[in-house]
Simulated scan of single mutants.
Amino acid sequence: MGKITIIAAVADNNALGKDNDLLWHLPDDFKRFKQLTTGHKIIMGRKTFESFPKPLPNRHHIIITRDKGYHVEHPNCTIVHSLSDALALVENEDLSFVIGGGEIYSLAMPYCDILEVTRVHGDYEADAFFPEIDPSNWKLVREEYHGKDEKHAVDFTYRTFIKKEN
């Protein structure tokens, strides 16, 4: 089994989004997301998928939905009806990513090896939240601060966690 990484941009209060949209615009975080996920399978919930204008290029989308009639006409999209079905599709991959939303992150946390979290410094009103990162299960191994600038209205920190061996 390869490594499974959760990747997310998360506010200080664990806010992820509201009304199926992001709460901030961070071009450098988008670039990092693209750089890390390109060429890999990405697992997401239906609402996360539907928040994209079109499927993301150079990535195979595995979309989890309870709706048995849900269908997407695109060669880089596969529909499944459970997280276990999604994980079965990536078991032979070296690396794959879970990209949201809140419910999928909560379900996937026990199965993931790495967390790539962009911590957005601020508290936001939201309807989707990231699960708490339990320090007894996760070790922070890298941190890189990015201050506000002309393209970023808020400062943020890239944080990489690896699952502790229990």
Rank of each mutant, 00 (worst) to 15 (best):
C77W: 03
L36R: 15
P57M: 12
T65E: 07
Q35G: 03
F49S: 08
Y70H: 10
N76Y: 03
I42P: 00
I79Y: 02
Y70D: 06
S84D: 15
S51D: 04
S82F: 04
H61M: 10
D85P: 02
H60W: 03
V72W: 06
T38L: 05
I63G: 03
G69R: 12
V72C: 10
T37V: 10
R59C: 07
H61T: 12
P55N: 11
N76G: 02
K68H: 12
P53I: 08
T38H: 06
T37E: 05
H81E: 01
Q35L: 12
K47F: 02
V80A: 10
H60G: 00
V80W: 03
I79G: 07
E50Y: 01
T78C: 08
H40Y: 00
D67M: 06
I79D: 05
I63V: 15
E50F: 04
E73I: 05
R46N: 04
K54R: 15
D67A: 14
G45C: 09
P55K: 13
G39D: 06
G45Q: 10
K47Y: 00
K41H: 06
M44P: 05
Q35T: 14
P57H: 11
V72L: 09
Y70W: 00
Y70M: 08
Q35R: 15
V72S: 08
H81C: 06
T65C: 07
P55V: 13
E50S: 07
N76V: 02
T48I: 07
I63T: 05
I43D: 05
A86H: 10
I62V: 05
I79A: 08
H71V: 08
T65A: 10
N58Y: 03
E50C: 05
I62D: 03
T37N: 09
P53S: 13
I43G: 07
E73S: 14
I79R: 08
H71N: 12
R46S: 04
H61L: 08
T48D: 01
I64N: 04
K68V: 12
V80S: 11
T37A: 11
P75A: 14
V80T: 12
G69K: 15
A86R: 13
C77F: 01
D85S: 14
S84F: 06
N58I: 00
S84P: 00
I42V: 15
L56K: 13
Y70C: 11
H81V: 10
P57R: 13
F49T: 07
K47G: 03
V80L: 10
H40D: 00
R66P: 01
N76A: 12
M44S: 07
N76I: 01
R66F: 01
T38W: 00
T78S: 15
N76K: 06
S51A: 08
K54S: 14
M44H: 12
K68A: 14
K54E: 11
G39I: 13
H81L: 07
R46G: 02
E73W: 01
F52P: 01
H71Q: 14
C77E: 04
V72T: 09
L36C: 03
V72R: 12
H61C: 11
T78I: 09
R59V: 08
A86V: 12
S84Q: 15
F52W: 02
